Amino acid sequence: MTEEQGYTPPKVWTWDRESGGRFASINRPVAGPTHDKPLPVGRHPFQLYSLATPNGVKVTVMFEELLAAGHDAEYDAWLIDIGEGDQFGSGFVEINPNSKIPAMVDRSGPEPVRVFESGAILLHLAETFGAFLGQPEDRPELLSWLMWQMGSAPYLGGGFGHFYAYAPYPMEYPINRFAMEAKRQLDVLNRHLEGRDWMVGDDITIADMAICPWYGRLVMGEAYDAGEFLSVHEYTHVIRWAERFFARPAVQRGKMVNRTFGPLEEQLHERHDASDFETRTQDKLSEAE
């Protein structure tokens, strides 16, 4: 009998700090801050507090695409190290009571406005600048795909990704359950993208920016080391779309912001100016030490 087959849930659940696998230390069953830590504030109208997970990349790609399109969307991107518990600092909890990245403060108006949840940030920025929303007649379709991503990706990341790559030991039932769902979602996208360059309309929108950092990374072999396991080569339309998305210069810059893993030349822990991509990546900072 395996450990998973022999588990009987207790009548009342209690928190075991030692369980939960690789990321157990960043999870807890209560909300609120654990320590006092104010957030830094830069000089730009938009202050982003994030990490280059797929949800964080959505927003930094949006900012870089806005700037590339000529919008006055300068921003400061501050690193939130979830492994160190930065998301539980008092300043971060004040702008996101859910203690998840990304979170943003829009200081472009008379009073600062907090925005949390990546989909909400994308929509807020798109409406603020009137950009990447597609044609007016496309709005219902765009919002449908944006909400599809927000509802579906937790099954990919917190479901398949967790049990396949991060759980304390392999468990057949949840891996099979969430692999099936991940492949179903990829098939949804593959069918939709047949004959299309972008998710909605004829150009990139926030629907692409929301979905591709999750599913595009997966089919490009950049997520969970699971490409062969999920036979991602089958999803040819998703691969074609992801290649187009990740080839965009603004997307390549957005992927670097708040990144703390991978090659040093692709890591820009904080972004405060466009020149930072040339002067403040981790390889440059390491050379200067």
Rank of each mutant, 00 (worst) to 15 (best):
R271V: 11
T260H: 05
S275F: 04
L142T: 02
K11L: 12
D283L: 01
G216L: 00
E222H: 13
F261T: 14
C212T: 14
I95D: 11
Y169V: 03
N176Q: 14
E18S: 13
P38I: 02
D86H: 14
Y169K: 11
Y75G: 09
F277P: 13
W214K: 03
P213V: 02
T260K: 03
D276R: 08
A242Y: 01
V59G: 10
A247E: 14
E18R: 12
E74D: 15
G227P: 03
C212G: 03
G91N: 08
A31H: 15
I101N: 07
E3H: 08
A73W: 05
A153Q: 14
A77V: 07
T8F: 06
N258E: 14
D81W: 00
Y215D: 05
V57A: 13
H162K: 04
D36T: 12
Q135C: 06
G109L: 09
M147R: 12
A182K: 04
P97D: 13
N258R: 01
G91E: 11
R139W: 01
L142Y: 05
G262H: 06
R17C: 07
K11V: 11
A242F: 05
V12Y: 06
P168F: 02
Q5V: 04
T281Q: 14
L66M: 07
G227E: 05
V238T: 13
E266S: 12
I101A: 02
G32V: 08
M209P: 06
A242S: 15
A68V: 02
D106A: 05
T205E: 09
R271M: 14
E266V: 00
M220Y: 02
D283V: 04
F116A: 12
H162R: 01
G201I: 02
A120K: 06
S286A: 15
F277W: 09
R217Y: 08
I121F: 07
D81F: 01
V232K: 04
G32W: 09
H35A: 12
S99E: 04
V57W: 03
F88W: 15
P45D: 00
A288P: 05
I80W: 03
D138Q: 15
D106K: 00
R259P: 06
V200M: 09
E266M: 12
A120Q: 01
G161S: 01
L264Q: 10
P10I: 05
F163C: 04
V219H: 04
F116I: 03
Y224S: 06
S108H: 00
W214Y: 14
M1K: 08
M62G: 06
I206R: 03
F277N: 11
D86R: 02
M62A: 15
H162A: 03
H237K: 12
T128H: 13
N190Q: 08
F63N: 07
A247T: 09
